[in-house]
Amino acid sequence: MLKIYGVYKSRATRILWLLEELGLPFELVPVLQAYKLDDPKAPGVRLNTHSPEFLAINPMGSIPTIEDDGFVLNESLAQTIYVAKKYGGPLGPQDLSEDAQMLQWTLFAATSIESDALRISVSNSSGRLSTDAGQAEAKAAARLLARPFGVLEKHFSDHAYAVGDRFTVADINLAEIVRYAQPWQPLLDQHPKTAEWLARMQGRPAFKAMWAKRLAEVE
């Protein structure tokens, strides 16, 4: 059985959404981000990303980590690609061309979108997005995101999904990164086809099930 180290309120949403789509059983080992604890190394503190026993599994001290029959993988986007290829059926690539396209969209999201989109997400979660300074920060990030979002807009003007004519792991990887920019509505308003695609992805029952568990999670 797959073992997932992490919590829902983290990048683990990527692999956890995929597992909901697949209906694949897994064991979740709660590992909290160390920055959320006053003293992550205090005696008796809960398992966290600075705990020696977790660092023995993932020396980078990041979540999620997955373990599949002794095989350990620490990068979340690599995890989704791996699971989709091994267990995903139509959610994974059906040939070498699709494999390359799924990897391309995944890397595009990670390198061209995630960093700037996270600036918007962090500003929103910290409450700064409602301030003048936070809005200025979001506008600056949105300007940098205009080009990659333009690429998405062109693609989703002609295609319903990232790869092929079906929902795949590429949509999960893209959607979970694009989501970080979602609090800045003007960016989505300027890219309506991308916004429509994201709404369809987040309307899937598996996403809703994963997100409900995230909202219910007690840290």
Rank of each mutant, 00 (worst) to 15 (best):
R14P: 00
T49V: 06
Q94M: 10
G61L: 11
V72T: 13
R46W: 04
K36R: 15
K86G: 04
R11Y: 09
D39A: 13
P43E: 07
E75T: 01
T106Q: 14
T111C: 15
A12G: 14
I66H: 06
P93Q: 06
D68V: 02
L37M: 12
D69E: 14
V72R: 13
Y87F: 15
L73N: 08
I81Y: 09
K86V: 04
Q79G: 02
E75Y: 07
V29E: 14
A34E: 11
I66A: 05
T13C: 13
V31M: 09
Q104L: 11
A56V: 01
E67I: 01
A42I: 06
L107T: 01
T49A: 11
L73S: 06
T106S: 15
F108E: 05
Q104T: 03
R46Q: 15
A110G: 08
A34V: 05
K41H: 04
A100V: 08
P90M: 08
N48W: 10
G92W: 07
K86Q: 14
P64W: 06
N74G: 13
Q104I: 00
A110T: 00
R46K: 14
A34S: 15
F71S: 00
F26N: 01
E75W: 10
Y82P: 07
S76R: 01
L103D: 13
A56Q: 04
L73C: 06
G44M: 12
I81H: 12
H50M: 13
Y35H: 14
L96M: 08
I57N: 05
A110S: 14
F26Q: 02
I63H: 03
A84H: 03
K36T: 12
K36Q: 14
G89D: 10
M102I: 06
I15V: 15
M60R: 12
A84Q: 04
R11F: 10
L107A: 02
A12F: 10
S112F: 09
E20P: 03
K85L: 12
A109H: 02
A109C: 13
K85G: 06
L55I: 00
S51Q: 04
E67C: 03
K36L: 14
T65W: 05
Q104M: 14
G70V: 03
Y82K: 08
A42V: 05
Q33T: 00
Q79K: 00
S97F: 12
D38E: 15
D39M: 09
T80Q: 03
F108S: 02
V83D: 08
H50S: 12
T106F: 14
D68C: 06
S76K: 01
T13V: 14
S97N: 00
L77Y: 05
Q33H: 12
H50E: 14
L103E: 14
T13E: 13
G61F: 11
S112R: 13
D95G: 11
P59L: 06
A78D: 09
Y35Q: 12
L73I: 07
P43F: 13
V45F: 04
T111H: 11
P30F: 10
L28I: 02
A110F: 12
